[in-house]
Design a protein around this nucleic acid. Structure first.
Length: 420
DNA sequence: TCTGGGGTCCTAGGACCC
DNA sequence: TCTGGGGTCCTAGGACCC
């Protein structure tokens, strides 16, 4: 049994290079929202020593001058990702899409050489058809396959973009050369804790007694450790992974002190969450709202809080979710602080066919569902928010003094008018 | 001056029940 | 005054991932 991992190299940068070939061969980074952090780097940018997740202002000035900085375009990356995954899905078995630029799969043949030739072809095919360079690693476990794909990426000329980490001797050699912090599942905290015990390489972690790893850390870390030894511990996930939570949040471009502005943002996040729920034919039972100040600012008092509200009947109705988000928001809002970020998180998500209806909610639920569907249809037809629910109204009912509104009982008003 | 967004899983501790 | 044990469910918080 072996797992394959296909990994798109420097994915966001590679996408940008598709549209602008002059970016080839030079240092390029793609930035997060508000152009705050580096979220993708070309090899040339990595060579300049720019770390992943690095805030832009921390890049030394004379380095920054030589780097092309681009704002992220995640819709575009999503489209390109889909094309890569479609090609993979057509040629391999049990493709499990793990992230926008990675997927696990199992091998199509028993014969190693045949597999290798097939995979090397696949790497060339994706490069030719989509224009994205990928690397593929194979190993007895997913954790080892991640390490194998790193080897494939690093030593591309030797490996054809495909690397097999199957033989115990080969695994042993590679693990000795792999810093423990590069192992999938070992982050900064665990790396530091392990270093205190003299464990700095993946091989040393693999050699630790599993019971000790578990008692020092957690079952998750023990699983990681066993995977390094070749025990397959990560349960396979179904191809269509249902979400346990849906989140929408944003760091604001500047510090906000006005209630109205933060509240408007929360309403927008709640609406986007509700729309995604409906797209996934799901309903949520929990609505969490959180707000927080700027943890880096020493000169203003810091405040952060969150509140979770349960819906009496799980719902995907914008009205019900925005309503509960406002109840939660009102509970945590504090005047006199500055706010840097807010978000809405939906939890307890289930399929919408199995909603346990509250006795009094039956009729209301069916009507809500029809209304939401009508609104989604109109908006998707025109491609803009032609129809929207009332909460955007500055004189609306979402004021603190109206925070006792019960779920589902507030009136629904519809604006029709083009969005400017 | 400037520090992302969207997820997952695990653990500890409290409330509550019999 | 003495004041169980075992179970479930929920939540907050932490660590990790890309």
């Amino acid at each position: 049994m072996a797992y394959g991992l296909v990994d798109c190299n420097n994915f966001f940068v590679s996408c940008e290079r598709l549209f602008n070939p002059s970016l080839n061969g030079i240092p390029v980074v793609v930035l997060s929202n508000n152009d705050g952090c580096v979220i993708a780097r070309s090899n040339e940018a990595k060579a300049l020593g720019i770390p992943m997740g690095c805030p832009v202002f921390q890049i030394r000035e004379h380095t920054r001058e030589h780097v092309v900085q681009l704002s992220g375009r995640h819709t575009v990356y999503g489209d390109i990702s889909r094309r890569v995954m479609e090609i993979m899905g057509a040629d391999v078995e049990n493709l499990e899409i793990y992230s926008v630029d990675e997927a696990f799969f199992t091998l199509p043949f028993d014969d190693v050489e045949r597999n290798h030739a097939f995979m090397a072809d696949l790497v060339r095919k994706i490069q030719k058809w989509v224009g994205i360079p990928v690397s593929i690693g194979f190993a007895p476990t997913r954790t080892l396959a991640k390490i194998a794909s790193h080897v494939a990426k690093k030593d591309r000329r030797i490996t054809d973009g495909v690397y097999w980490l199957m033989r115990p001797e080969a695994i042993d050699i590679i693990l000795r050369r792999t810093p423990v912090g590069d192992v999938w599942g070992i982050g900064r905290r665990l790396r530091e804790a392990l270093a205190q015990r003299g464990v700095t390489t993946a091989a040393q972690l693999a050699a630790m007694p599993s019971a000790l790893v578990r008692s020092l850390f957690s079952v998750t870390t023990e699983r990681t450790q066993r995977e390094l030894r070749g025990d397959d511990c990560v349960a396979p996930s179904p191809i269509t992974v249902a979400h346990n939570s849906i989140m929408n949040s944003r760091t604001f471009g500047h510090l906000i002190t006005r209630r109205r502005e933060v509240q408007d943002a929360v309403v927008v996040f709640a609406k986007m969450c509700a729309k995604r729920l409906r797209d996934e034919h799901a309903v949520a039972g929990l609505v969490t709202v959180y707000v927080r100040g700027d943890r880096y600012r020493q000169d203003v008092p810091f405040y952060a809080n969150s509140c979770t509200v349960r819906l009496i009947t799980p719902s995907s109705s914008t009205n019900a979710i925005v309503n509960q988000a406002m109840v939660a928001f009102n509970a945590i809002w504090r005047e006199g602080f500055t706010y840097r970020k807010a978000g809405v998180l939906l939890g307890d998500i289930t399929g919408d066919e199995s909603v346990q209806l509250n006795l009094f909610d039956h009729e209301n639920h069916a009507r809500q569902r029809q209304l939401m569907q009508a609104i989604d249809n109109i908006n998707s037809h025109y491609g803009v928010q032609v129809v929207t629910l009332a909460p955007d109204d500055p004189a609306g009912e979402w004021r603190p003094e109206h925070s006792h509104t019960q779920p589902g009982s507030s009136s629904l008003r519809i604006y029709t008018g083009m969005w400017k």
